[in-house]
């Protein structure tokens, strides 16, 4: 179990941080830009080939796996883009694009001289593809038959699937019962196969309504409803679950 999969409902955390800025330090803009460029150049996308030396896959799933894999104390300790910087640097080292030694050495150089210029150059086609990705996106919708789907109003039981590295099933919904609010049209893949957790192939997705008093009996506020979008691999019709 990873705490990062079970954040919803966690107690004892103190006041929220109401900071409305997107970036609180100028350096954070750079790691955001690097991440988004990597997503645009990721090798699985059906976009034009470029001269970029980047030839592996980088998606939100990779970024999320990194954040979900770190020590939960560090997850709360570090700001959002500090975690990105650690995860993305680690990816480039792990995949052999750069070495830890050269990153450390060059960090010292820029630490000593923060105004030292960046290198220049690069093919325009790389940046054209980045724009194309932002404009076109990467829809997970797939045109495949979906078979039997649930209906609005159906009661569903949320499975406690054997998640290992990554999931899109929030922990606080596991083993709970909800009601289908929306059946999204068609079928949706996920960015990677999550193995025994169960998503990755095209499947229906439902918006499911939950009564917070059933999620946290006697310990949730009154007069609200919590909705979550859930892949069909995570839900069972409640009558089927009861019979099993």
């Amino acid at each position: 179990m990873k705490l990062q999969h079970h954040l919803g409902g966690l107690e004892g955390l103190g006041p929220v941080w109401t900071e409305t800025r997107v970036f609180v330090e100028p350096w954070e803009t750079r790691i955001f830009g690097i991440h988004t460029a990597m997503m645009a150049l990721s090798s699985q996308l059906p976009l034009p080939a470029t001269p970029s030396a980047f030839d592996t896959i980088w998606t939100w799933a990779d970024l999320r796996k990194g954040a979900e894999g770190i020590n939960p104390f560090d997850y709360f300790k570090y700001r959002y883009y500090e975690k990105w910087l650690g995860g993305i640097s680690g990816y480039f080292i792990e995949k052999g694009y750069i070495t830890a030694e050269e990153l450390d050495a060059l960090t010292e150089v820029y630490y000593a001289d923060p105004d030292k210029a960046l290198p220049g150059g690069g093919a325009a086609a790389i940046d054209e593809r980045i724009i194309q990705y932002l404009v076109e996106g990467d829809s997970p919708k797939r045109d495949v038959p979906v078979g039997d789907v649930l209906s609005v109003g159906d009661k569903v039981f949320i499975k406690n699937v054997p998640t290992i590295e990554h999931t899109r099933l929030p922990g606080f919904l596991r083993n709970k019962v909800g009601t289908v609010e929306t059946v999204y049209e068609g079928a949706y893949t996920y960015l990677c196969d999550t193995g025994p957790d169960g998503i990755g192939t095209p499947m229906p997705v439902y918006c499911v309504a939950f009564d917070p008093q059933e999620l946290w009996p006697g310990n949730a506020e009154a007069n609200f409803i919590l909705y979550a979008d859930l892949y069909s691999a995570y839900v069972l019709p409640a009558d089927v679950a009861e019979a099993a």
Binding site: L103, V109, Y111
Partner: peptide, 10 residues
């Protein structure tokens, strides 16, 4: 700041 600049440079 230095580390992200080093990463972008590489």
């Amino acid at each position: 700041a230095a580390r992200v600049r080093a990463l972008e440079a590489l």
